[in-house]
Design a protein around this nucleic acid. Structure first.
Lengths: 201, 201
DNA sequence: TGTCAAAGTTAGCGTCTCTTACATATGTAA
DNA sequence: TTACATATGTAAGAGACGCTAACTTTGACA
């Protein structure tokens, strides 16, 4: 349980302590949730003294921000990759996005909740920007499928409906006890249903 | 900011400290979020020593459970009340449920996140049972509207789709920064759209 | 009126936290 | 080889927190 993370610790100097701390932090957030994360834990896992992080981060908050930034960037790239194999303008692309979104939430619930589970959002401009970039991907797909010339009001509405649904599905799926209420419903089938129901006229 | 909550404090003995502590806890969770809630804070707000709660609750967790129980019961009753004015079997009833669900999330985001924003759910049987009761309300409405004889597979699927959507809409609406991405979309209109789109054949 | 349980209080233990000041080891470049 | 900047360690401060033990006040009831 207390795996240490020090890729190339060469005695006193650590190969890349910053990266190691980010990874340790990410793992701990995933394992215990953000409210039980402590800098000390991250240090223990990185095999380093509790004072070491402060040479790389201003404080605890910046460690968490670093993790969030890295993870959301990864998520964005995953979404783009999920899009690639499917023909432009096909509904399958929307489904791929949804599938990926739910998948990310289930694979990394700690990060997902860190990003979305607080009333006070990211606060970090870089994060907000990345969030917008990611949402733009969705809006562009929707516009393309609806044959609209850009992000019209209609596109905005349908995109937000899709996002709401997929986001809710993610939240419910993450919690086994809640997901259970949906019976043995297949996520794929739900995404399929929602896709055409929301995008049709 | 440090309002005290002691309804009829008559010197040494408090009128109903247990209730006062639950209310103080509820307020604090609402104001600072669950991860910044402390028993000490609740005591300060209730105008009582930090040892007092332990005459009424076994520990911090049980204080939080009490709040959650009380709030979810209130939410369930709100939903039933929202249903009442509308004719049986009408789509308006579903919209009323959705409106109330989103409304609750926006009025009491702290509690809402406490209930839904963790991978580990309530754990408390009483809570789980109440959650099921509340969901049953939705399923029954859906069955009634679809003209199905009880909670069939179709009813389960459509109910879960509605829940996912409304839940996601709640989460996004709670966070102004995220809600903003939906432009100036009217919640009422979104609920309307989703209602018939999900329930139609 | 006297007794007793219930419901408070005060005091403090033990633990964990984030953070800093200062000492020390290391790698690099003159 | 020496000097210096960078990276880490050691030690400790300052404070919050959860919770318990033991004492005190209060109200109710015999």
């Amino acid at each position: 349980m207390a795996e240490t993370v020090h890729p190339e610790k060469s005695g006193y100097h650590h190969g890349d302590l910053r990266a190691a701390l980010v990874e340790a932090t990410r793992q701990l957030i995933e394992e215990k949730g953000i409210d039980h994360f402590s800098v000390s834990d991250a240090c223990r896992r990185a095999g380093v003294s509790t004072a070491a992080p402060y040479k790389h981060f201003k404080n605890k908050g910046e460690m968490i921000n670093a993790v969030m930034l890295q993870s959301m960037a990864r998520h964005k790239n995953e979404m783009l990759a999920a899009l690639a194999p499917h023909p432009e303008g096909s509904l399958e692309r929307i489904r791929a996005l949804g599938r990926n979104y739910v998948g990310f939430a289930m694979r990394e619930p700690g990060i997902f909740l860190l990003r979305f589970g607080h009333t006070d959002g990211p606060q970090l401009p870089a994060l907000e920007e990345m969030g917008q970039d990611t949402y733009d991907i969705v809006q562009n797909e929707v516009a393309s499928i609806l044959g609209e010339p850009g992000v019209t009001d209609k596109v905005k509405q349908r995109s937000f409906m899709l996002w709401s649904f997929v986001h809710g599905l993610s939240m419910l799926s993450m919690n086994p006890e809640l997901a259970e209420k949906g019976g043995n419903l297949d996520v794929e089938e739900l995404l399929n249903q929602i896709g055409w129901r929301v995008l049709r006229d």
